[in-house]
Design a protein around this nucleic acid. Structure first.
Lengths: 350, 350
DNA sequence: GTGAAAGCGCTAACAT
DNA sequence: ATGTTAGCGCTTTCAC
């Protein structure tokens, strides 16, 4: 896109370092030092410079600083498009608090279509970005170029990035899914519905595996006693699964959902059809979004440390960007915990 | 913060425009033109350059480009801290889709404490940002400097910015609140509880005003027939209001909430205390978050065009950044509409 | 402790 | 149609 002004288009009247230098009667180098290395300039010089900066309302031009310094103090956060906002919003809050406190700006990039992937890859390669935080295990790729080979640090949050050695902050999806299953099994449920996440999704794969293991270890036959229904982490997935459930001849009595939104929509839909929760059917969610306390009945779920996931990932990234790779390349695994509320209860005898 | 390398810290091995120029046997100017103004270079030259760009994996250095062009193709979106995520996430989606499609990166800034305000003001003045989109009517200010005097365009979404001539995209809060009230009044409710937003909040003020007007026009006495309870747009505000409601001697039968989260939490809390909705009490929310369809009972509310609010604001900002100020400086007002679901019903005769 | 000056990578004005 | 070159605003040597 063409620039309109004849020369540079810099904001009219924007104060430059040379303006400050002239007004303070020093060189630009001294102004720069007074701002960045205050103890390298004499007390009175420094004060004079800083007062002038104040008086003129000077803010250093970031582009010039970045060009010179090679660092932008900006990181990119890659977010799965539209999926699961109540969960990610709190992860993002942890990310944002931590990064902004450390002086980093956060550019958020939704990853959806090809075009978006291209832009994110370009962004990562343009020098505008010091590091990437990827939630959801997705690493944008376009025409063979990936965010992973932009020679900037990448940290994964909530899911590892396939084929990457990036540091990661996770919860133990498998163990949490086992906890979901074991809770229902302990209540006497013997036929279970599993409402899945998207096929191949990092968390879905691990959760389903943990779930199946727990069922098998309880002496049941996973292939006979589990019904698996595909889902999408959204309300609509819960509704679809519920409709399918309602049409089953031999309905499961325990339902494990791969996230809370689906669990809530599932519960609402079968309740509307006259099924009582937990008397007839027990439902377990996964995530611990706030909403689980305000739906009917309140949702038994896995409480994820959402803020912590984000904050820890952000801290890891800051370390990496600053060139202090943590001592340990293995993932940091935080604990989720089972939160028993009103959507689960004993299985009724047949 | 000191830079660590001796010279510039540019990414090792990052391809520069001169590398491409040399490899393609042309000047840097030609490479630049081939990339930015393809029709200014001869067909075969252009192809040779573009192939070289591909082969070398060249992406222009954004800092250099910005420094030279005076534009960063980046905008700042200011978001109220932690307030009302289910509502804003969809507004943000509209913003983000529109801006990223137009090639703009989005830096998101939560506005909370003083320190954050300082950083956002600095950001706006640093030349890193081409424009600002402010949701919620808040314009960060620090020590007299404001985001508003950074000589970059500002567009307000969902709320006007006080003391600013910025373009704005709004819904008609007053009319929507009247619709809430009129709905309850038409159902025969004569004593109403209003669960408010934060004091002084742009939307709260207008909604309450519209609400009171409708009540007065119905021939009731606002000072006698309305109970106003403060709130915060969060679940906790709804819970608090509900507790207060439960302790009232002469309980209102109709409840108007300033947003859906409070309405949902309010409804849940009074239901837990044995009150039936809508038989005993009717509840109306405001926003139209998805969750309103999955709570018990489903929530009568005002459906806001959330995506459109964001998308329209983004488009306005893009125009302003490109120097095409819209023809009309007055706010764009989108329509919210009353969505009648199961949380409201006829008032019972006393 | 301070100043002079080079140069980060790019684009646009000017020259050819 | 293409090349040469100045310079965007800053930081950081290097010299004093």
């Amino acid at each position: 896109m063409p620039v309109r002004r004849r020369r540079s288009r810099r904001a009219e009247g924007a104060t430059r370092i040379s303006d400050v230098a002239r007004a303070a009667g020093v060189s630009t180098a001294t102004v720069s030092r007074a701002l960045s290395f205050p103890d390298q300039v004499r007390e009175d010089t420094r004060r004079r410079v800083l007062e002038t900066v104040q008086a003129l309302g000077y803010t250093p031009n970031a582009a010039a600083r970045h060009l010179r310094a090679g660092t932008s103090r900006t990181v990119l956060v890659v977010i799965p498009r539209r999926s699961n906002p109540p969960f990610f919003s709190e992860v993002l809050h942890g990310i944002d608090s931590t990064l902004s406190e450390a002086g980093y700006a956060v550019i958020s990039g939704n990853v959806g279509d090809e075009e978006q992937a291209r832009r994110l890859v370009d962004l990562a390669h343009s020098g505008r970005i010091d590091g990437v935080l990827a939630t959801s295990g997705l690493a944008p790729v376009f025409e063979g170029r990936s965010i992973l080979n932009a020679s900037i640090p990448v940290v994964a949050v909530c899911a590892e990035i396939e084929g990457s050695r990036s540091r990661a902050v996770l919860i133990d999806d498998g163990a949490c899914a086992r906890a979901q299953a074991e809770h229902l099994l302990a209540l006497g449920h013997r036929r279970l519905l599993y409402v899945a996440g998207p096929d191949g999704n990092y968390n879905e794969v691990r959760r389903f595996r943990g779930f199946v293991e727990a069922v098998a270890e309880a002496g049941l036959d996973p292939s006979a006693d589990i019904v698996r229904h595909p889902g999408n982490y959204m309300f609509s997935g819960g509704v679809t699964a519920a409709r399918s459930f309602l049409s089953m001849a031999d309905r499961p009595t325990g339902v494990v959902c791969c996230n809370d939104e689906m669990a809530i929509a599932f519960a609402k839909t079968i309740r509307d059809a006259g099924i009582s929760i937990p008397r007839d059917v027990s439902v377990v969610g996964f995530d611990g979004i706030e909403f689980g306390e305000f739906c009917e009945p309140t949702l038994t779920t896995i409480q994820q440390p959402r803020f912590e996931l984000g904050a820890t990932g952000a801290r890891l990234l800051i370390d990496a960007v600053r060139g202090n790779p943590g001592p340990d390349p293995s993932p940091i695994v935080l604990q989720g915990k089972l939160l028993i509320r009103d959507s689960t209860g004993p299985a009724r005898l047949r």
